[in-house]
Amino acid sequence: MKTASTSRSEQTRRFIIETAAPIFNKKGYAGTSMSDLTTATGLTKGSIYGNFKDKNDVAIHAFRHNIELIFDFFSKELKTADTAMQKLLAYPRGFRKIHPMVLAYGGCPIVNTAVEADDTHPTLRKMSMDVLNRWKSGMVSLIEQGIVEGVIKSTVDAANTAEILIALMEGGILLSKVTGEESYFLNTIDTAEKMIMDLRRQQ
């Protein structure tokens, strides 16, 4: 049974994570200071350290929170689709829906973290890789399901196709964010949709 103090502690931890998540996403691990976190949360450094070991601990939980938001969103999008083809198309459709929010949030947490952590933060780099592998695995399963259903060509290389689709969608978001030109995002999403439609087996 949870005590009132335990519940308050969990609420405080959740508040810190949810407040810190967009800050780390926008400023990165190196660019986010403890003063950024104390200012945003209104808590003292001691209060934050009373709930987390250090800034690194906060960053890891913040990244997990950001990833949960993304996967929860796409999980709901995929549930609205029936066939494997429709579920694959739910990815570019979903990115169209959340693109303005992603930009306001500072970009996609997956690619933001992966780029910064590549040579600087082994733990976050591994977490980013795990997320990409999880996403790729899900798309490979959908493509293979489509082949079994007879709606996707049997000659399609599921792993290769999943990698290209992910690179297209993530790359479009990154370049759109960096340049401020939405055309990067729109062109890559259009290309991803066309690529998925081209997977269809001719009846």
Rank of each mutant, 00 (worst) to 15 (best):
I70W: 10
A30R: 14
D36A: 03
D57K: 12
Y105L: 01
K55C: 02
T83V: 01
P109M: 02
G31S: 03
F73G: 11
Y105G: 00
G31L: 00
L89Y: 05
P109K: 05
G94I: 02
A84G: 04
A104P: 04
D54V: 01
K27W: 06
G50R: 02
G94F: 06
H99A: 10
M85D: 10
L88C: 07
K45N: 11
I48V: 12
H61Y: 10
L69N: 14
F63L: 11
D57M: 05
I67P: 09
I67V: 13
Y105F: 08
F95E: 07
H61P: 06
K26H: 13
I98G: 10
M34N: 08
K87E: 11
K97H: 12
G107W: 01
F73A: 12
P92Y: 00
L103V: 09
G94R: 05
K79F: 06
T39Y: 14
K55T: 07
S33A: 07
T83N: 10
I60F: 05
H99P: 01
T39L: 13
T38N: 08
S47M: 10
L78E: 15
K26Y: 06
L78V: 01
L88Q: 11
H61S: 14
A40R: 06
L37S: 11
E77A: 15
L103Y: 04
S75L: 02
T41W: 10
A81Q: 15
Y49F: 13
L78P: 00
H61C: 11
A40Y: 04
Y49C: 05
L103Q: 02
D82C: 00
N66E: 14
G107M: 01
A62W: 05
Q86A: 13
S33Y: 12
D54R: 04
V102I: 11
M34Y: 10
Y29S: 04
K53P: 04
K53N: 06
I48Y: 09
A30D: 14
I67K: 12
V102G: 00
T38P: 06
I70Y: 13
A81D: 10
I110C: 08
N56K: 13
Y91N: 06
T83G: 08
D57N: 15
C108S: 06
I70D: 13
H99G: 03
Y91L: 07
N66S: 15
G107Y: 03
I60L: 13
G31K: 06
P100Y: 02
L89I: 03
D72K: 05
T44D: 01
Q86R: 09
F74L: 07
R93D: 11
T38W: 05
L88H: 12
K53H: 03
E77L: 09
K26C: 02
F74P: 09
I98Y: 11
L89W: 05
G28K: 04
L37Y: 12
R96S: 09
L69T: 15
G42C: 08
E77D: 11
K26D: 08
K97T: 12
A40L: 01
P92H: 02
R64W: 01
L89E: 12
A84M: 04
G31I: 01
T80I: 08
F73H: 13
M101T: 12
A62I: 03
E68L: 07
V102C: 02
H65M: 10
G31N: 07
M101Y: 13
H99D: 06
N25G: 08
L69D: 14
G106E: 00
R96A: 04
L78T: 08
N66Y: 07
A104S: 11
T39K: 15
F63Y: 15
P109E: 05
K45R: 15
A81K: 15
R93K: 07
D72L: 00
